[in-house]
Design a protein around this nucleic acid. Structure first.
Lengths: 162, 162
DNA sequence: CTCAATATTTGATGAAGTCAATTGTTTAGG
DNA sequence: CCTAAACAATTGACTTCATCAAATATTGAG
């Protein structure tokens, strides 16, 4: 609107042409790969709640136990990780503290913040959980060694850029 | 026990030896590949609720809209897909019906079951949702064409065996 | 010292999950 | 045919996860 150059631009070639060239045969490569990956992902995520339940954790609690391994975390930082409201974390941590998995520890530099740490029992649970999470599902375990190596290397490259 | 041949078997080679041979260098290949895949998966799933919210859907509702595309589904079948209790589906569908996304339709063969179908509005929403879901995240879009082709093909092989 | 910003908590509310019990509707056996 | 078991969906009681708005406490800047 406002600042758009008055000179009429006839070069309308911004977005890709919808369907032409060899792309039309393959479709959009990233989209193809992603859609399949997404499907596998969802097929697996369906039983994440059940997996968490093996440890008597809710799905979110399992996620928290997992994230909390890297050392103490402020409540607000955890809220960011979970991308949820800070007030939600209060109750979440209340329940986990009541079950002896985590501890609130007031920060000494800033008495507003409370740092979360896993208790010994929490650490032990986390180790069992991580091992369980690392068990590959059938669909993956059934792949050939070549495919597994490729997959691993591709994932490394994808995650490296993070 | 019972029928096992009495001759003492000295060939104790059942389970793999824990650490020997080239495996020790690579570790467990399926586990490696899976762990990395899982990490990427979780990195992406963190903003699935936000993505669903773009369409004013809860995460579960988004999942339902997605699954419901393949045609009518009985409530109980949906409960299986979601791996949740049937009673949960009642409320879920109540809310989605109230918003005009789905319709309950009594089955004619068996008057106990109610089939779920997307309304026109539901179908329209589903199309927009699927398109949005197919948008590959940065981490994937940044991969080379070679990697994308390999990834796509590996995922196809993995999902084919499903 | 005062005022704005920040971290956590509290309270009200709704969605999503469970389980136990209820209501209709098949379906199988005597 | 009739009764009893099996099944699909619902209801009610209850928990967890999520949001928002408001309260409390602490920090930091001016």
């Amino acid at each position: 609107m406002s600042g758009m150059s008055g000179s009429s631009e006839n070069l309308e070639r911004r977005g890709k042409p919808p369907n032409s060239g060899p792309e039309a045969l393959e479709g959009d490569l990233p989209k193809q790969a992603w859609t399949l990956l997404f499907e596998l992902m969802h097929a697996h995520m369906r039983n994440f709640p059940a997996l968490a339940a093996e440890f008597e954790l809710s799905p979110v609690q399992a996620h928290v136990v997992r994230q909390l391994g890297e050392g103490p975390l402020a409540m607000s930082t955890l809220a960011n990780y979970l991308s949820c409201d800070a007030s939600n974390v209060t109750g979440l941590v209340d329940r986990m503290e009541a079950r002896g998995l985590v501890e609130r520890r007031s920060s000494e530099q800033d008495r507003r913040v409370k740092m979360l740490v896993l208790t010994d029992s929490g650490v032990a649970l986390r180790e069992r959980l991580l091992e369980r999470l690392a068990e590959p599902p059938e669909l993956i375990a059934a792949l050939s060694d070549d495919d597994l190596r490729s997959l691993r290397d591709i994932m490394r490259r994808a995650l490296r850029s993070q």
